[in-house]
Amino acid sequence: MFNNVFKSLKAIKDSFTADAIRRAERRATAAAAADDELPEGDGVFKPQRISRLIDIIQPTAQAGPTAEEICGIASRMPKDEIRRRLALLYRRYNRAASSLDPKLRHEAERMLDAIVTVRENVFGPI
């Protein structure tokens, strides 16, 4: 994914935020399909990967992925974990909504809508 980026600097860090996202994404997808049937994952959360996953599982489904699927929320995920994950995604995509990249801004609005939908589905409306 970063092939076009030449980076000369190197440092050591305890953990990556993306690790948490990847773990959640794995949990969300593991029950549904074997890894080798999925589009290649690279540790970075990608809504389109979830969309592709849904295509694989339900090729005849008319509707697109649900908000939960877009957000990588598995059906048996504990509420505390859902809350943490939604907070992480909200922080990311709320910032992305002000990005200098117009494509990312557009994607962010769609994700924020899904995040709020999941929040209301799981915890009820405000």
Partner: peptide, 27 residues
Amino acid sequence: YMTSEPNERFIEVDITQGEDDDPRFVD
């Protein structure tokens, strides 16, 4: 930071704005 390759002639520093550690989500 450390240089990652031997014989590097240029240290390239991209200055980013944003908290995310995923480069896709920073400017």
